[in-house]
């Protein structure tokens, strides 16, 4: 049934589930939430299955009108959400009543908020996913008469269906324990799994990479985080194109590192220093332009254990 009407989609609001998997060999990007941590908490607060679709709101300025009574949750960036003018805190579930308006203003901390809805956003999947990848023209809300959705961000007037359940109406408010709520305004220490062409880089280049401060630039998006700072000299002008994982740290010809994100291309031809550990990829997704970051080597086994703990915790 219909739950929300988009009054204003803001800068960029996208329907996202965990992502589109198993089709990268055909050249399709994975999509999914830029900040998996915040996304997973949103669904958990509502007792939704972990792959339920939510709305990723970038930079705020979005507003929605309730078309029915429903349970929702907001996680991730603090965008000063309010219901009919009364402020509503993040990292908790709450009831939104029919005719009420939920409004996000600008970002205070972080830059991506997740609006999760009871039962998850209902729309047609393509390749087993509703994740919106604008570049691939796949995912998102299907328009009337379409077999599948074509990768459109939310538009003014879109109506969002949810799956109502009696349980939600009875269930009390759920809160995320404070130790799981990140402070998105911190200077970031970014863990690096040294891999790919790391061995080919000169020691002096790697030293510079770890000792320097980098700044997130405004050119960053869901494809990649572009950094400003001391240049790293790549040992080669290009490599034979190879598969790239999320978090890959690519060094292009201009020497400025790019950290590839969820909408990345599937293949890349630049040398890479390694990959950013998942937890820090999610933190980077919330880093506004100007955020200062430092890199440090991460332990592969520890990072794998942490990823497994996360997957178990959220049932991924």
């Amino acid at each position: 049934m219909l739950g929300l009407e988009v009054l204003n989609p803001g800068v960029l609001s996208l329907v996202q589930d965990l992502g589109r998997f198993g089709v990268a060999h055909l050249g399709l990007s994975q999509g999914g939430p830029a900040d998996l941590h915040a996304f997973c908490w949103g669904n958990r607060l509502l007792n939704n299955p972990s792959n339920s679709a939510s709305i990723e709101i970038a930079l705020g300025q979005a507003s929605f009108k309730a078309l029915a009574d429903l349970s929702i949750a907001i996680t991730g960036a603090d965008m000063g959400a309010s219901i009919d003018g009364i402020s509503q805190a993040n990292w908790q579930s709450f009831r939104l009543l029919k005719h009420q308006t939920l409004r996000f203003s600008g970002c205070r901390k972080g830059q991506r908020a997740y609006l999760s809805i009871e039962g998850g956003v209902q729309t047609k999947a393509i390749f087993d996913s509703v994740a919106t990848v604008v570049r691939n023209q796949l995912g998102g809300l299907a328009q009337q008469g379409q077999d599948f959705s074509h990768g459109k961000p939310l538009q003014k007037g879109d109506k969002i269906a949810f799956q109502a359940s009696r349980e939600h109406a009875k269930q009390g408010q759920q809160l995320v324990p404070t130790q799981f709520i990140p402070d998105y305004s911190e200077t970031l220490k970014i863990g690096v799994i040294e891999s790919y062409q790391n061995d080919a880089f000169e020691a002096v280049q790697k030293h510079r990479f770890y000792q320097s401060q980098y700044v997130v630039t405004a050119h960053s998006d869901r494809m990649g985080i572009q950094l400003k700072g001391p240049k790293i000299e790549s040992p080669v002008t290009g490599i034979i194109s190879e598969g790239i994982v999320a978090g890959s740290i690519q060094i292009p010809a201009n020497g400025l590192p790019i950290i590839l994100a969820c909408d990345r291309q599937t293949l890349g031809g630049y040398a890479k220093l390694g990959s950013v550990i998942k937890r820090d990829q999610w933190r980077l997704a919330q880093a506004k332009p100007g955020t200062k970051i430092h890199f440090e080597p991460a332990d592969l086994n520890l990072a794998t254990q942490q990823w497994m703990t996360f997957m178990r915790f959220f049932g991924l």
Partner: peptide, 15 residues
């Protein structure tokens, strides 16, 4: 995911 390219095969798995 299993992504083949020229000289490589990238294998992503569910740990």
């Amino acid at each position: 995911e299993c992504i083949a390219s020229y000289t490589t095969l990238l294998v992503e798995y569910h740990p």
